[in-house]
Nucleic acid binder design. Structure first.
Lengths: 213, 213
DNA sequence: TCACAAAATGGACAATCGTCCATTTAAATC
DNA sequence: GATTTAAATGGACGATTGTCCATTTTGTGA
């Protein structure tokens, strides 16, 4: 039976990463110590140094892994819908506010890392390249929509709509962070689409009906 | 000369709080140790325990102080403008995105504390009560505006506009956090008003002109 | 089954953490 | 100027941090 060794090795690596994420979500970054991590992963103290060369690298890796999961989730959703601009936008908004993506654990992790982003180049770096891909996707969708309105500068409109929409979604995440129990997903979605409908009255007018079937 | 004693005492207390904020802004929460704080404040090790009973209390106090400053800044701005709903909204948006309030130091501090909010009740608590006041202010302004449109449910519209606007501003702060150097204040403002203009075409149509005189 | 090597262990280590208090400093009162 | 007392000092303290390596375990190939 070949590859068993590497399989275990990989499983342990993964365990460490997930132990970090669990700990960050539950106790915060400042209480996520080496002792805490190895206890959760049920591995020995030396493993962190062996697999990642040190705690900082492991934490960076965990942050990378976490953001990868977020974007993979969004991209997977896009596969399940049509190709019109409106459909893309609706799916991204729904996905970003869905239970699968916007939940207590993810929000805790995300904001914990954000808080450290400014002082940890590695954490800020990957967040950027990934973010650019999503932003581009949203922009293209809005650009297709904006062109249909025959406005003077459709790309400018699309740029603003992209910026505004992503900013509003960010803000909804903050709402959820601060009030996870009173947060209302449907309300958040309704508001985003109310703004979008105001900008593109011919496109997002039906979105409410589509969203709640 | 009476009160000199208390004056020094108060100055030292303040020094400690500001040392925490400086350190959090520059090095992050996890590197803000007792040694770091007293070195910046140029005070002795025992002062933290003497004045605040421990490091955690001092950090909580610093977070409270910082958020107090933010809201005081916003409220001060509101004193300098008219009383119409539109004027209030414009002033809050402008203020929230102004250099005086949205700058590298404040953003660093704000997000550092946010990252810890979930695991530190004290930090989450005061943030809420203050936030509620601002939210109420924005809501009242939008409610006055919405009523003029003769819509079916003006309060619902105002609620959504409030939620959406504050969310978008939050998102702009995140943009600034992640890209402080490429962030464009004017663009951020333009986008917020573009969304508002789409919702209230008779009110925020002139805002662009008002903003850049 | 045995020898080899990769992987995992767990404790030693110096460094740093936050707390606390015996001592010193200096403002306030007489 | 002497006395009182609140404020400030700075080091001792045990606990905890992350790193690292000598040792043990265990899968792999001969």
């Amino acid at each position: 039976m070949t590859g068993r060794r590497q399989e275990i090795r990989e499983r342990n690596r993964r365990s460490l990463i997930e132990a970090v994420l669990d700990s960050v979500a539950e106790k915060g970054i400042s209480e996520t110590s080496v002792s805490e991590i190895i206890q959760r992963a049920e591995l020995s103290r030396g493993m962190i140094h062996l697999h990642f060369g040190g705690k900082d690298n492991l934490v960076d890796e965990a942050a990378r892994y976490s953001s990868e999961q977020y974007y993979d989730g969004i991209y997977a959703l896009l596969e399940t819908t049509g190709q019109t601009g409106q459909e893309h936008i609706e799916m991204i908004v729904r996905g970003d506010l869905s239970e699968a993506i916007l939940n207590k654990k993810n929000v805790s992790i995300w904001y914990a890392f954000r808080g450290e982003a400014r002082n940890r180049a590695a954490i800020a770096a990957f967040s950027d390249t990934r973010d650019a891909k999503l932003r581009n996707l949203v922009f293209n969708a809005f650009a297709r929509i904006a062109k249909e309105y025959g406005t003077e500068h459709p790309n400018q409109v699309a740029r603003d709509a992209t910026h505004g929409t992503l900013a509003m979604l960010e803000g909804m995440w903050t709402d959820y962070l601060l009030h996870p129990d009173s947060f209302d997903r449907d309300e958040a979605m309704r508001i985003v689409f109310r703004f979008l409908r105001a900008m593109f009255p011919e496109h997002f007018d039906l979105s409410g009906a589509l969203l709640f079937e």
